[in-house]
Simulated assay, not measured.
Amino acid sequence: MTIRGCLRIIWLGAAAACTADPPPHQPPAAPSPASVRAQPAEFTAAVEPNADGSYGYVVKANGRPLILQPHVPGRPGTRGFATAAQAQQVAQLVESKLRRGQMPPSVTAAELDSLGL
């Protein structure tokens, strides 16, 4: 087939597409989940005992576990907090960071020092 023949086929196809009936009107699509503004989460923190006698915490968003932290964050090792009160302090810090929209709600060594841990 020659170039002229190929061009003629392309031209005929384009002409047929231009004269075809337009597609029927379709209703607008439902908004995607990403476009719908999410409801603000309600965060709660609770202290949980570890098997070794130390303490950790869990932070929930709308009743579903979001962060499960059985050991002291920002410190080497896997040992938990010595007391439930220490775990509660850090859990409340993480919870407040989440409420402010800070993501990830990392806990630094300096923050632990400021809490006296």
Rank of each mutant, 00 (worst) to 15 (best):
M1R: 03
M1Q: 01
M1I: 09
I3Q: 13
R4S: 11
G5F: 11
G5A: 12
C6N: 15
R8W: 14
I9N: 03
W11Q: 00
A14S: 06
A16I: 11
A17Y: 02
P22Y: 15
P23E: 13
P27D: 09
A29K: 07
A30N: 05
P31K: 09
P31V: 14
S32I: 06
P33H: 15
P33I: 13
S35M: 08
Q39G: 02
P40D: 01
P40S: 05
P40Q: 11
A41W: 11
E42C: 09
F43T: 02
A45Q: 00
A46T: 12
A46R: 06
V47E: 00
V47D: 01
N50V: 08
A51W: 13
D52K: 05
D52N: 08
G53F: 04
G53C: 03
G53K: 14
Y55S: 01
Y55Q: 03
G56C: 04
V58I: 10
V59G: 01
K60W: 14
A61Q: 03
A61D: 05
N62H: 11
R64D: 07
P65N: 11
L68N: 04
P70R: 15
V72H: 04
P76F: 07
T78Y: 05
R79E: 11
R79L: 09
G80W: 15
F81C: 01
A82E: 04
T83R: 13
A84G: 03
A84I: 08
Q86K: 08
Q88P: 12
V90P: 00
A91G: 05
L98E: 05
R99H: 15
R100S: 03
R100T: 02
M103F: 09
M103E: 02
P104F: 07
P105I: 08
V107R: 15
T108Y: 09
T108N: 14
A109V: 14
A110I: 05
A110R: 07
E111R: 07
D113L: 11
D113A: 05
G116T: 02
